[in-house]
Each structure stands twice: as C-alpha cells, then as structure tokens.
Write a protein that binds this DNA or RNA. Structure first.
Lengths: 136, 136
DNA sequence: GCTTAGCCTATTAAATCGATAGGATAATAA
DNA sequence: TTATTATCCTATCGATTTAATAGGCTAAGC
C-alpha cells in the first residue's frame, strides 16, 4: 500500500509542476489546494528538499519550488525518495539490497523469482514517466 | 513492502506444489523446511484453506495439501488472498475499490494516473504466472 | 480411548504511520 | 533596526498494523 507520505508528496510535486513559473509556493497554499494537513506536508516537503528535488526560500514571498524541469525528473527518483525501495522485498532491490535471513539460496527461491518480475514491471512504469507526465 | 505473511505463504504453497503426490504435509514439516515459525505458519495456512486454495486433514497422517493443480492456480488469486489488493491505492483497485476522501476528481489525479499503470503492470506479471511457475 | 495434528480465539510486543507541537532560523519589509 | 513572515528542525504522541505466541478445542486414526 502506498503511504500517505508518498501520495501527498506526489500531489505536491504535481502541483508545483503545474505552476506557471518556478516561483516559490507556500506550504499552506499547496496544503489547501490538495487537502493535505499543513504540518504533515511540511515534513514531506522537507525530505523532498533534502533529497535535492525541491528548493526553498524563507520569509515573505518564500515557499518551495522545483529545482529541475518536470520532464527531467523521472518517477524512479521520486518514488525512491518518498516510498523507499521499489522492490517489494529487499533481496530483489537494486538500490536497497539486503539478503534474506531465511532463504538459503536466492536463485531457487520462489518469492525472489516472482518479485524480480514485479520489480522490473514497476520499474518499467516509473522509468517511462517523468513528473511532467503526471500533470493533467 | 511484502508482508512476511505473504512471503511465508508463497513459500509454503511452493513447497506443497513441489511435492510428488498431493498427500497431506504437516505444518511442522513445512515450517522446518522453509525456516518459518510453526505457529505463525499455522495461521497462514488456515487462511489459505479458508480461501479455498488448500485442503486439510486432521489427526495422524494429516496436514495440508493443494486442492488444485499448481498450473491452475494463478498468482493473482494467491496474492489477493495473502497480501490483499494488488493496487497500491484503493482508488485503482479492481477487487477492493474505494474512493479517496481527499481528491475531488479521480480522472485528473496524478496519483491515480500513475498507480493505474503500476497496477496494470503488476497484474500482468501475476496473470502470467501460476503456482507451477514458482516451483524451481 | 489415547494420541495426533489441525482449528480457533485471544493476546502481546514491537514497529510503523499519520499527524501535531513549538521553538529556532533566515529573509524581507517597514 | 525591528517586526513580520515562512521555512527549518526535533521531539512526541496516538492509532494501527505486523509478527509472533499461547493454549484450549475438535476431529481423525490406531
């Protein structure tokens, strides 16, 4: 299940991408437009900024803005920042690999086999979409 | 992330599918072979039985067995029983649909749009695999 | 009628999630 | 310089979910 963090993060990013210029938009403005808790959204935007996707400006006229053009932001990046691994199981994760403590042999593990396919198919979708594709 | 319940369930089903005949196999036997907590596995097998995938036999010589042939068990069914919705968000779920409380319009929702693609790609994988395909 | 092995419900410890609180910091305007 | 504005940051909290365990009940077989 997609976390609310990811859901809200995607909505916020899409909202920013749909703005005319790249002027800063206040948290409250985004929260209001997208029906998101102001404080919760704040923490999400913070992680998006720390990950390098967003820039911010303090004080009057401040807010958050996209650093790159939406078409240059692949969903693989966004999803990994917000949701973490794309794989459903650490042993098939490209960026967050971890060996299973049970499971003596990955090559012959049915879960591994199936989840590899699922990861690849999800990856395919995320690779084929940039933030620009999410703007209606 | 895949729950341990699903992971263990998949391993147990694969183990049963790999058996020669369709003789009942004891919980303890499966638990031992697959490194799964005996009691936890018991509860998982119970839900698999209630869902109609497994049959069971009590008393001496008892255990669990597959009701159908592995090749006749699509992974869509297995995953929905064990993990629940295949969709990452209820508003794109075929079998567990639910409207989002936020989000005034699904058609123009970026999350909806993206997650529809992800669901379809996952569904494609699960449709193309039966339990038989998981046996090494 | 004893043993075996699944049936079933309840409970619990830990982790995660969604949300909130509140002061610190920096940028702008008066 | 000072007031205002809006982000920065850390800490906490309640609710839910997850993984696992406990323990008695029921039915099948010998």
């Amino acid at each position: 299940m997609l976390s609310k963090k990811t859901k809200y993060g995607l909505k916020a990013l899409t909202f920013l991408a749909s703005q005319k210029g790249r002027q800063p938009v206040q948290i409250s403005e985004i929260a209001k437009q997208e029906n998101i808790s102001r404080k919760f959204l704040e923490s999400i935007l913070l992680t998006l900024r720390k990950s390098g996707l967003l820039g911010s400006k303090k004080g009057k006229g401040g807010g958050y803005y996209l650093i790159k053009e939406p078409k240059d932001i692949p969903m693989t990046v966004v999803m990994r920042v917000l949701e973490g691994p794309i794989a459903m199981v650490p042993c098939v994760s490209l960026n967050f690999y971890e060996k299973c403590s049970d499971c003596p042999d990955e090559a012959s593990c049915s879960v591994h086999m199936l989840m590899l396919q699922v990861r690849d198919s999800a990856l395919e979708v995320y690779k084929n979409n940039t933030l620009a594709d999410l703007v209606p």
